Simulated scan of single mutants.
Amino acid sequence: MDLQQILKNPMTQQIILALVTKLLAGKLGGAANGAAPAAAGPGGIDLGGILGSVLGGGSGGSGGGIDLGKILGGVLGGSGGKGLVGQLDAAGLGNQLQSWIGTGANEPLDAQKLTDALGPDTVNEIAAETGATPEQVSDTLSQVVPALVDESSPNGQLDPAALQATLAKFLG
């Protein structure tokens, strides 16, 4: 399924933004990495502000600016398995991951396996923040995560610049 088509749904956007916020804050799977939690606005999350500063405020690591490649690489891959890919791989989803990263056909992602990988608490928190049910969160992310990883690995390996471009299109 085409990621840009998926991203047109406002609930899907909120769910993805909540997941990315958790990744940026190091809260995926309930394991904090010492980063401060993302700021929440009256409607839940302020991802526009967070990702706006990440995507728009970076200077690629020069001149003391934000090292966008390092940030997005951490969100996607993470050190110590705390990024999205590391969390999914640790949960036994390595074969699916390789299909999304590689240049062949993408294997589907089972919503329950995704819930197990992210942690039920994470899925429940995203549901509470977005007004979706936990099942909607799992189902949505089981469609989006493979497409997002696929688009972030155009040459058969994860590329933070490709993730940046995908998220920039998503944010408009």
Results as ranks from 00 to 15, higher is better:
Ile6Lys: 10
Gly57Leu: 06
Ile50Asn: 04
Ala162Tyr: 12
Glu125Ala: 08
Gly49Leu: 04
Ser53Val: 14
Ala36Pro: 00
Thr103Lys: 11
Asn33Arg: 08
Gly80Arg: 03
Leu19Gly: 01
Ser99Gly: 15
Ala147Ser: 12
Thr103Cys: 08
Ala90Ile: 05
Ser62Arg: 02
Gly78Ile: 03
Ser99Cys: 13
Leu97Tyr: 14
Ala25Gly: 15
Glu107Met: 14
Pro134Lys: 07
Gly52Phe: 01
Gly56His: 05
Leu72Asn: 10
Ala105Val: 08
Ile50Phe: 02
Gly74Ile: 01
Thr115Asp: 01
Met11Thr: 14
Val149Gly: 01
Val123Leu: 01
Gly30Gln: 15
Glu125Pro: 06
Gly172Ala: 08
Met1His: 10
Gly77Arg: 09
Lys8Ile: 12
Gly69Cys: 08
Ser99Glu: 08
Ala105Asn: 14
Glu135Ala: 12
Gly49Trp: 00
Asn9Lys: 15
Phe170Ile: 04
Glu151Asp: 15
Gly48Tyr: 05
Val75Ile: 05
Lys22Thr: 14
Gly172Asp: 04
Gln96Gly: 15
Asp150Ala: 15
Leu171Ile: 13
Thr12Ala: 13
Asp121Leu: 09
Ile16Gly: 01
Gln136Leu: 14
Gly48Phe: 09
Ala36Thr: 09
Asp110Ser: 03
Gly63Tyr: 13
Ile50Lys: 01
Gly74Arg: 15
Gln136Tyr: 09
Gln157Ile: 00
Gly26Met: 12
Pro37Cys: 02
Leu114Ala: 02
Gly34Glu: 02
Lys22Asp: 07
Gln4Ser: 11
Ala168Ser: 12
Gln5Trp: 09
Leu47Cys: 07
Ile101His: 11
Pro160Gln: 13
Ala40Met: 05
Ala35Glu: 10
Ser79Asp: 01
Asp67Lys: 09
Trp100Tyr: 12
Gly26His: 08
Glu129Gly: 04
Gly41Asn: 10
Gly86Met: 09
Val137Trp: 02
Ala40Lys: 02
Val145Arg: 02
Leu76Cys: 01
Val137Phe: 07
Val123His: 04
Met11Ala: 13
Ser142Ile: 11
Asn124Leu: 08
Leu24Pro: 06
Gly92Met: 01
Ala25Phe: 07
Ala127Pro: 11
Gly102Ile: 02
Gly102Leu: 06
Gly80Tyr: 06
Glu129Asn: 05
Asp121Ile: 11
Asn155Ser: 13
Met11Pro: 00
Glu129Ala: 06
Leu19His: 00
Ile66Pro: 08
Leu109Pro: 03
Ser62Val: 00
Asn106Phe: 03
Asp121Thr: 14
Ile71Val: 12
Phe170Gln: 05
Val145Tyr: 01
Ala162Arg: 11
Asp110Pro: 00
Thr21Asn: 02
Leu76Gln: 02
Ile15Asn: 03
Ile16Cys: 04
Gln112Phe: 00
Leu171Thr: 03
Asn9Phe: 07
Pro160Thr: 05
Phe170Thr: 07
Asn95His: 15
Asp116Trp: 06
Gly77Ile: 00
Thr130Ile: 07
Glu125Gly: 07
Val54Gly: 02
Val137Met: 11
Leu72Arg: 08
Gly61Gln: 00
Gly86Pro: 03
Ala38Ile: 13
Leu72Trp: 04
Gly30Tyr: 15
